[in-house]
Computed example of a mutant assay.
Amino acid sequence: MVQAEVAKGRGLGLSELAPRVAQSEIRAMSVESDRVGGVNLAQGVCDTEVPQVVTEGAIAAIRDGHNIYTRLDGIQRLRRAIAGKVESTLGLVADPEREILVASGATGAFHAVAMALFNPGDEVLLFEPFYGYHVGTLRSLRVTPVAVELEGAEWKLDLDRVRAAITPKTRAVVVNTPSNPAGKVFTREELEGLAEIAREHDLFVLTDEIYEHFLYGDAKHISPATLHGMRERTIVMSGFSKTFSVTGWRIGYVIADAKWLPAIAYFHDLLYVCAPAPFQHGVAAGIEQLGPTFYARLALDHEAKREMLVSALRDAGLSPHVPDGAYYILASTKGLESVLSGETAAQRARSLLAKTGVAAVAGSAFFRAGKGEDLLRFCFAKKDEDLAEACKRLRSLR
């Protein structure tokens, strides 16, 4: 009877966290775009062509019967391919048997890493504008994200701000380079400064490098794991969703010191069991057969797409921040108050969709409350004909 009364008093309901959670603004705008038949520049779906060797590798794997669970750390072929790739492109040496985990995308990798390394109440620094899924994942685990603002139009890192944000509860720093949504590529000087702070305060550095091959102009990608004294404390997360245009396949990876990887792998197994088996084979084929020429062409193709969209945004009256990497553009709507209705970025994004049929994401999705309300984020990883149509529609705004 007493137990029944306790249960009755508790009642049905959501968790303490759930009422504070809303659908991702990125996903919400994708739904709105589909509803009105718009051109979706909101979500980074990356619907460019998949390399033929990648699709054929996955199809062959299905036909050859590779349709069951893999080892929890992924197939050996892919782990070895990843090890070879990161050594040749980053100069990073990793043991495919002890230091590499094939994950369900970089997002799944981040979730498993956070579960393995952090406790409720820990604090983790990340840089603003930030990727919302990093923040949401930390909060879902009762870990406190602490935003450190990047400065100016070039999103410069102020190391004094980083030091000021550190408390006794700080356990790690998250670095997304090249970054979503700003397209910032952290410089060697900035990363060496962060490395010094991480060593001084005994912090992990979690580095999301999913856009490593999308670099423009003189920008260079540097993995913090390759810096002096950083290999043990750096957790590298990346994947092939963007590089091979297979965002729906969910093939990512983690590289971590052998002392950390078993716990990360345990939680990834608990959450996802394994990444899809035939897709692992398809990605392995891509890594094995596509080399530096492919990655260089990928960057050049997207640099041309960047220029297309930057030009159209300027013609439409928006003021774009030109990214050095990744495939997103943050653009200011200041001066368009008479054209785009609404007090918030979310309202202006919907106004833009209604007027032009082009979907963007509210910049506020990448900032703390009250910030980013004058910004919209646009994705240019689209087929040229779709991007050209979006540019035409944007220019109609003026």
Results as ranks from 00 to 15, higher is better:
Arg142Val: 07
Ala172Asn: 03
Val135Ala: 12
Val146Trp: 01
Asn180Gly: 00
Leu138Cys: 07
Pro181Trp: 01
Leu141Arg: 02
Glu149Gln: 14
Arg139Gly: 01
Arg142Trp: 13
Gly152Val: 11
Pro168Lys: 14
Gly136Asp: 10
Val148Ala: 07
Val162Thr: 08
Val146Ser: 04
Pro145Ser: 08
Arg139Met: 15
Arg163Gln: 14
Trp155Thr: 01
Val135Asp: 09
Asp160Lys: 14
Asn176Tyr: 10
Asn180Arg: 01
Arg161Met: 06
Ala147Met: 14
Val148Ser: 01
Arg171Pro: 11
Val174Met: 13
Thr144Ser: 08
Val135His: 11
Glu149Met: 12
Pro168Ile: 01
Glu154Pro: 01
Glu149Thr: 13
Ser140Gln: 11
Ser140Ala: 14
Asn176Glu: 11
Arg142Leu: 14
Glu149Arg: 15
Val162Lys: 04
Lys169Met: 11
Thr137Tyr: 10
Pro168Phe: 11
Glu154Lys: 13
Ala172Ile: 05
Thr170Ala: 06
Pro181Glu: 02
Leu150Asp: 04
Asp158Lys: 09
His134Met: 12
Glu151Asn: 09
Glu151Met: 10
Ile166Pro: 04
Lys156His: 06
Thr144Arg: 14
Asn180His: 07
Lys156Ile: 00
Trp155Ala: 13
Leu138Trp: 12
Ala153Leu: 05
Ser179Asp: 09
Thr170Asn: 08
Thr144Gly: 00
Asn176Met: 03
Ser179Phe: 01
Lys169Val: 00
Val175Trp: 02
Val146Thr: 15
Val174Tyr: 01
Arg161Thr: 00
Arg171Val: 02
Val143Trp: 05
Asp160Met: 09
Ser179Trp: 02
Val162Trp: 04
Val143Pro: 02
Pro178Cys: 05
Ala165Arg: 04
Arg161Lys: 15
Asn180Pro: 00
Pro181Arg: 00
Ala182Ser: 15
His134Lys: 07
Ala165Gln: 00
Val135Ile: 12
Asn180Asp: 12
Thr137Phe: 08
Ile166Asn: 08
Arg163Glu: 15
Ser179Tyr: 03
Val175Ala: 03
